[in-house]
Simulated scan of single mutants.
Amino acid sequence: MTRRRRKLSEEERDLWDQVRRTADPMHPERKPIVNEAEWLPEPVRKTPKVPLEDVPTPPQLEHFTIGMKAKKGKHKLGQHLTPAIEDEVAGAPLNMHKKTHTQMKRGKLVPDARIDLHGMTLAQAHPALVAFVMRNHAAGHRLVLVITGKGKVKETDSPIPERTGALRHQVPMWLQMSPIAHMVLQVRQAHLRHGGGGAYYVYLRRAR
């Protein structure tokens, strides 16, 4: 970028002439440049300072001390950061016959077998569920019931949402994992007569 040039003042011109007369040219054979000191780079202009009274005042935050509760806004308290497990299960693609699926959701199908994981730890429940599904799939059963319980609601002042019912959230994930994922055709929340939100219908594929 080329800077704009300005003309020398009288004092600058006189000073330049004195310097030029005392200096020895490096290449005397060259012709002197006419008016070589007529133009000099124009000094860079500084951005004018804004008066303090013109500087906008930042917004003031409300006073807050540890222990104070946040004001209630439009958001729902206790809302999960991700969709509820009921919505995830209900929103899964339909893989089974629609008529059979409707009957199953209405609780009109009787499960061939059931397992109650309620009260177990995650370390105990996972292998028990895997063995249960493999055993019933080998036996040719189609509909089985997995009882997880709804989980206890914990009283907490934590601002971070916490899910209740570890088993209720883990079981649908386990059913999509090896070594039983290929045996499971559909997972849906059970009808109220079979446990409602605390149990799952697991519809198995036909054994080959």
Rank of each mutant, 00 (worst) to 15 (best):
M134P: 00
M173W: 06
W174H: 07
G165L: 05
L77Y: 04
M68P: 00
S9G: 10
T100R: 04
N95Q: 03
T100F: 06
A131H: 02
M104E: 00
Y200N: 08
M134R: 13
P179T: 15
L15T: 11
H80W: 13
A207C: 14
Q103D: 13
G197Y: 14
D14A: 06
G119W: 10
V171K: 06
V110M: 05
E36N: 06
G73K: 09
R142D: 14
P127Q: 06
D54F: 02
H97L: 02
Q18M: 04
P111G: 11
P25W: 04
K46I: 13
I66L: 02
L61R: 11
G91Y: 03
N35R: 06
W39F: 01
K150I: 04
G78T: 11
H126Y: 08
I147V: 15
K154L: 14
H75P: 13
A125Q: 00
R135F: 01
E11V: 11
I85G: 04
T65C: 01
I147Y: 07
Q103Y: 07
Y200F: 15
T121N: 03
I160N: 14
H194I: 00
P161L: 13
R4Y: 00
L145V: 13
I147Q: 14
G78I: 12
Y200G: 04
L52C: 08
L167R: 09
P51V: 13
A84G: 10
K150V: 10
R106K: 15
R21G: 10
R206D: 14
R193M: 01
K76E: 09
P48E: 15
V184T: 05
K7D: 09
R13G: 04
E155M: 07
V133Q: 03
E162V: 13
K46L: 13
R114F: 12
V144Q: 00
A139Q: 15
A139G: 01
Q170A: 15
H194M: 04
L81F: 02
P83I: 10
V146N: 07
Q124T: 03
A128L: 02
P58G: 06
D14E: 10
R114T: 03
H97V: 07
R206S: 04
E42S: 01
L15K: 07
G78M: 06
Y203V: 08
G165F: 13
P59L: 12
M96I: 12
R188W: 07
Q176N: 13
G165H: 09
W174P: 10
H191C: 08
I66A: 11
L129E: 04
L8P: 00
M177I: 01
G149W: 12
E53F: 13
A190F: 07
P59S: 08
D116V: 09
H63S: 07
I147C: 09
H141S: 04
P83N: 11
M104H: 05
N35L: 09
P58N: 12
E38D: 15
R21M: 08
E11C: 01
V187P: 05
F132Q: 02
R205P: 03
K150P: 00
H101T: 02
H126F: 04
G107Y: 05
V50C: 06
G119C: 08
L109K: 12
K49N: 08
R30K: 07
P41Y: 09
P111Y: 10
K105T: 07
V50W: 09
P159N: 15
